[in-house]
Computed example of a mutant assay.
Amino acid sequence: MKNRKYATDPNNRDDGAFSRRNFMARSGFLGAGLIVAPALLSACSDQPQSTSSRSDEVASTGGSGMKTRKLGELEVSEMGAGAMSISANYGPPADINQGIRVLREAHEGGVSFFDTAEVYGPHTSEELVGRALEPFRDEVRIATKFGFDSEASGLNSRPDHIRKVVEGSLKRLRTDRIDLYYQHRVDPDVPIEDVAGAVKELIAEGKVLHFGLSEPSARTIRRAHVVQPVTAVQTEYSLMERDPEKNGVLAICEELGIGFVPWGPVGMGYLTGKISARSRFDPKTDIRSTFDRFSPENLAANMPVVDLLRRISENENSTPSQVALAWLLAQKPWIVPIPGTRNLKHLNENLGATKVQLSPGDLGDIETAFAEIEVRGGRMNEMQMEMVDQTV
């Protein structure tokens, strides 16, 4: 990868677009996977083949040392970057020049996989990603998502709506194709076969290259995959959020040769060790204030998870968040976390997780210790969980 820097254009700023629109203020229906607290961006923040052929990581990307992995047939950096949290939805957005710099520094650090969505902002995250990545568009892979109707404040995955919104995403992203196009949430009013069929048509037209699903059930994944091969599944997954191991999602990804992209890979900031039982979240700006897992009682009750990561990190000369990310990377060679940040120091910390090599002994110790810990509180509130596909 070429070692180069990109200057932002102070005469072509979109700061107003980022500050005048706050989708969360207008719509109370968005799921937790759509937003990340700016104060905690260090942590937070998206073909069938035999499983035996998926065990090898491919060569590193240039001089960065970052290895690559396969999401289905899509080759990306082993660590991605979530762009949502730069454009907020929790509190004010970052200055656009700061956001551009962070995304370009991520690219310099070897990241080739960037995640955004139409609804983030709405639209402002895609605009940021488009501006930041345009100079080296052919060197990166961009994932974005459809499935919400910002005007109607609800889910909408009708094929005609998908065809409409993809044009806006392409324009905002300043590109002629979307590398990975996720359905953001499964729409119970639209058969998944119809959704997959609509994306299949976009793939035939070259506007989309790969199809993904966000927060689907194993049954939905299988049904969609029959119509159009699913390249990647995105859902929350971390050391403290293990549902994908229990609900069949990871198993079906392995069976069908589908990649897996964890959002919230460090527990929406909790696993960084920067949140304590004394932490409070502004109910006007931070949706975690409505999550039981982030109540004062549960913040204190779940601290043993962070203590476990601290113990391991001391042995590895790393940080709790790096161990949390390294743990995810060690689970399967087709898992690609997408931590997000607006802070360059935190970006470097996230990328440094790829250098942390947890031994089989480390992994065993983590599992043994975690088995003695009861994680308190659900991962999202009832309203957000209603939009998670839990069909069986």
Rank of each mutant, 00 (worst) to 15 (best):
L34W: 12
G267V: 14
R185S: 05
S321Q: 14
E215V: 09
R174W: 06
T220D: 02
D189S: 12
D362Y: 13
V375N: 08
M24F: 14
I373M: 07
L344G: 08
S60A: 11
A152K: 15
G121M: 06
P135W: 12
A326S: 14
Q49W: 07
E134V: 00
L128T: 13
A106T: 02
S77D: 05
Q98S: 09
I142H: 13
G212T: 09
G269I: 07
N315R: 15
K171S: 06
K171D: 00
N89I: 14
F211H: 01
D9P: 02
H210T: 03
A301Y: 11
N302H: 10
N350S: 15
L155A: 04
N317Q: 13
Q47C: 02
H346S: 09
C253E: 05
T285P: 03
F211G: 04
P283I: 12
A106L: 11
S19H: 10
E201A: 01
Y270T: 10
R278S: 01
E367H: 15
Q234T: 06
S112A: 09
A251N: 10
G109F: 02
M385Q: 03
G154E: 12
E127T: 06
M24L: 15
L41E: 14
V119D: 00
N317W: 11
V388L: 14
E78L: 05
E73G: 05
P10M: 03
